[in-house]
Nucleic acid binder design. Structure first.
Lengths: 193, 193
DNA sequence: ATTAACATACCGTCCAGACGGTTGACGTAC
DNA sequence: GTACGTCAACCGTCTGGACGGTATGTTAAT
């Protein structure tokens, strides 16, 4: 049968990351390793076996966060869509996906993101991904001004959710539809021209 | 002559807040009171005289930040502008003001903002201001969709600067002009209709 | 003299990380 | 198939230092 890891290391690693995210959301970046370990049902020694330092734990969190982000975008890529702006549309649909639930919901909590970005080392890593996403979106075939606007709005969603909580469904749908319209050349033009 | 405060309490208070912001940017929210006090040229006892606890210091930081934000918007309010969207335009011009310098620049550093928002208590206060700004902008006489889009983009600027650094001048100007155009009913329409 | 504005010394707690152990899975040899 | 070596996965404890906050002095303005 499938290789069952000895004592399921991967499982505990996941549990540790989930616990860290949970604790981060409620306690901010000042969480202690003890709390995370306890929450994950592991001793502190066990935690330090998987992440040799607190920074490494945070780095792992950042990696997990970005991996989930990439995966979410990938999920929302429409195979039937071959027109310019398809990647933008995937980003938009991923950002406004309201069907996420369970553990995944934790990782889309803006408070977790804020706590993560407050850690200088994490911020450094996030910047690298930031420029990658930027270049990918730029190569999506849309007018630069449209990409510019869409990117800023998507970024803004995080900040807005952090400051005002998640908006009601109607507003979210309006925002999403405006953005999706911006990805269609037939949609209302916004760039000066 | 003008009331010179005894031993210039106001001055040291400012110095403490500036030092806290500086330390916050480089060290994240785990900054210690000792570091802040040292940086401000004050003993820890002196710090605790002005801010009786660490939370109070953070609360003071948040208050200062929001006060500076309000002041910046106020500065960019055009008295000669009486048309709908004047408050939105002030927000936009404030967000894209590149002439800020010196101490003020520190307070417009997104890393400071991120570190602040990671503190749960600060986040709570920020939320109150968030809904206030929102209602003010809604009463600015513009189409709701336009306000929606503009607000999101302005919020997004913080996140973008945090993740990618400040964009070059050309891009900033383009973004600003797009937004300013959105505040004019004669500008290109974006709302479905 | 009184009070605000600091400084100094100190205490109790918390916490990151080190360290030495223990347990269980897996291969290997017989 | 069983005894054994080995290595990753994990546990529990300890410690040195950092850190928030208190308690108490000291100085300057009014």
């Amino acid at each position: 049968m499938g290789t069952v890891l000895q004592r399921d290391a991967e499982r505990t690693r996941r549990a540790l990351l989930d616990a860290a995210a949970t604790a981060l959301r409620t306690l901010g970046p000042s969480v202690s390793l003890d709390v995370v370990a306890l929450q994950a049902g592991v001793s502190k020694g066990g935690l330090l076996h998987h992440f040799r330092s607190k920074d490494e734990l945070f780095a792992g969190l950042a990696g997990e966060w970005m991996a989930r982000f990439d995966a979410a975008v990938q999920t929302h890529l429409d195979p039937a869509d071959a027109e310019p702006g398809r990647l933008c549309r995937a980003h938009i649909r991923a950002a406004f996906d309201d069907t996420v639930t369970g553990d995944d919901q934790l990782w889309s909590d803006p408070a977790v993101l804020a706590a993560l970005l407050a850690v200088p080392e994490v911020l450094r890593r996030a910047r690298e991904s930031g420029v990658r996403w930027r270049s990918e979106l730029s190569a999506d075939g849309l007018h630069p001004d449209r990409v510019l606007l869409i990117s800023r709005v998507l970024d803004g969603m995080w900040m807005t959710e952090l400051l005002e909580g998640r908006a009601d469904l109607d507003e979210r749908h309006r925002t999403r539809d405006i953005l999706l319209g911006l990805t269609r050349d037939t949609g209302p033009m916004i760039a000066a021209e």
